[in-house]
């Protein structure tokens, strides 16, 4: 039999997440437990806390701990044009629809350090859509948002970004959009002229505009099922009629209570279209 009493570590995790919410209004209480547990163990080990309770005491009393802990709790791993076929599908199948609108709102939800923001801005420029578009790039992690706004990446990642861009059907050279120096590349500020970076939580915040395309990839995998339902519901309510939702390659709306609000638009690249309004 599985033990019916709650393990001490599970109690500690629940209390820490509650403390984070009450003290700082960061709500991880409905994040997927397996992954949260792993990352809290990592945080304790690397920051030298014997228990999660010890970590909780520190983070409650010392707010400079918060950004460090958030660094563990929010996963900031991405790349430009990640899953090139997704961007190819946006370019070849979604863009023709978007071209019929005179103005466009695009939401990159959980934009992390901005890799996908710049990818879409470049794609939209290549397709002649940039001037009619406003991009909303949101995340809960302030440090990630600042990094996204800066648009500076390590030079050693650029080979992968370039290869991905080419595979995505890129019509220009990625090097047209950045300056390299001191082991880093800095993306052209003109790419973010039409981007609004802002703090927004899929857990606690609401709809803020009517979107034509929402891209939220590998963000909801960190949520539990009920929280995923909330986020997908938020996307459903945010999308214009026949608007598009792109999710991660191994995510699915099959298990969502809002599945009937969407149809598969490009099945293999996980692009859905809003239906029923």
């Amino acid at each position: 039999m599985i033990e019916t009493f709650e393990k001490v570590e599970d109690i500690e995790i629940r209390l820490l997440l509650e403390a984070l919410y009450v003290r700082y209004h960061y709500d991880f209480r409905n994040y997927a437990m397996g992954s949260i547990k792993r990352r809290l163990r990592q945080a304790c080990e690397q920051m030298g806390f014997a228990t999660i309770s010890a970590l909780q005491e520190k983070v409650l009393h010392d707010e400079t701990m918060l950004p460090r802990l958030l660094g563990y709790l929010t996963v900031q791993v991405s790349e430009m044009f990640r899953d090139p076929s997704y961007f190819r599908a946006i370019r070849e199948k979604v863009v023709p629809h978007l071209k019929t609108y005179s103005s466009l709102k695009i939401w990159i939800a959980g934009c992390s350090c901005g890799e996908e923001v710049y990818s879409l801005a470049i794609l939209f420029r290549e397709e002649g859509l940039e001037d009619r578009t406003i991009f909303y790039a949101t995340d809960i992690n302030q440090q990630a948002l600042q990094a996204a706004e800066a648009g500076v990446y390590d030079l050693d990642r650029i080979r992968l970004f370039t290869e991905n861009h080419r595979k995505s059907g890129g019509k220009s050279s990625l090097s047209d959009y950045y300056n390299a120096g001191y082991g880093r590349v800095s993306f052209d500020r003109s790419l973010r002229e039409r981007v609004v970076f802002s703090d927004h939580s899929l857990v606690t915040d609401a709809v803020f505009g009517e979107m034509h395309l929402i891209s939220c990839r590998n963000v909801m995998i960190y949520f539990d099922r009920p929280l995923q339902d909330r986020a997908v519901g938020l996307f459903k309510d945010s999308l214009a009629r026949k608007g598009f939702l792109g999710i991660g390659a191994k995510e699915s709306l099959r298990f969502s209570e809002h599945a009937e609000g969407f149809k598969e638009f490009v099945r293999e690249d996980k692009i859905y279209q809003r239906v029923g309004i």
Binding site: I2, A32, M33, G34, S35, R38, R39, V75, V77, N218, I221, Y222, D224, R225, A249, K250, E251
Partner: peptide, 21 residues
Amino acid sequence: APPDYHLLVEDTGTLGLTYEE
């Protein structure tokens, strides 16, 4: 497990994926 994702048992009835290091 699919390529390039970690696979975890989330609870006794569900599997989850993550893109951690």
